[in-house]
Computed example of a mutant assay.
Amino acid sequence: MPDEDLMLAYAQGDAAAFDVLYARHEAALYRFVRRLLGTGLSAQADEVFQEAWLRIVTARHAFRAEGASWRAWAYTIAHNLAMDRLRVSGRELSVDVAEDGEDALDWLAAHVEQVAPSTEDQAFWRAAGAQLLHCLDALPAAQRAAFLLHHEDGATVEDLAQRLALPFETAKSRLRYALQKLRGCMGAYLAPLGAAR
């Protein structure tokens, strides 16, 4: 059953439909929130994640299937809560090594089309995953949000502009700047991999 139909069923009182939605999106939405907050606010990821689901539950009657997809709707709620938390914190972005090398490894491998690194490449990819999280953390929050919405949620530039309430060119610029900074940050690290191919 599509997410949108599940949400409509939940809005009509079908609690089991919500259970399916939650099970389907729990891990990905949590990763999204955690990456948006960065390692400096990772301790608050659980709270923001729970608040996102609470907002989804309380707004269940406001969801319209003819609008954005359920996933886009839910991720927009999570994005807005995370951005609010970043604004309130007023923190400068800190750069720490990721605590969960496995998660970083999986994410990096999926985005460089490396399905399963060989045993001898595990250390390299774990370190590369940590480096990528370091690079993501170093991005300004607005650029990190654009990058994560685009790459985690598959949002197009048009979707980014709509979901972030930005002019199209601003959304496009944020994504372009984020990609440039990530390429620069990761370029030196991944250069030996390119030379080996």
Rank of each mutant, 00 (worst) to 15 (best):
S173Y: 08
W73G: 05
S69V: 03
W73P: 01
D19F: 01
Y22L: 13
A104V: 03
L6A: 09
V88Y: 03
A74I: 05
L36M: 13
W107K: 07
D46P: 00
L54V: 11
H111I: 08
D14L: 13
G90D: 07
R34S: 12
E152R: 11
T156E: 04
G129Q: 03
V57M: 12
E66S: 15
R144L: 05
L54D: 10
H151Y: 09
L164M: 15
R55T: 12
R183K: 11
A188D: 11
Q143T: 01
A138D: 08
L29W: 06
A9T: 03
S89R: 12
L175S: 06
R24G: 10
A82T: 05
E99L: 13
A45K: 01
A128I: 04
L164P: 01
A123E: 12
D19H: 03
A104F: 00
A196R: 15
W53Q: 03
A110D: 12
L193R: 07
E152K: 05
A161P: 05
P192I: 00
L41N: 00
M186E: 02
G154L: 09
R85N: 04
N80G: 09
E158Y: 05
L160P: 00
H79D: 12
H25S: 09
A161H: 09
D153F: 07
R85K: 15
D121K: 09
E26H: 15
K181F: 06
G90E: 03
A11M: 07
R24V: 01
L166G: 08
L37Y: 01
E51S: 15
H79K: 08
A74V: 08
E99F: 10
S173P: 00
W53D: 02
D19V: 02
L29D: 07
H151E: 09
M7T: 10
L54T: 14
L105S: 08
A74D: 00
D159Q: 14
C135V: 02
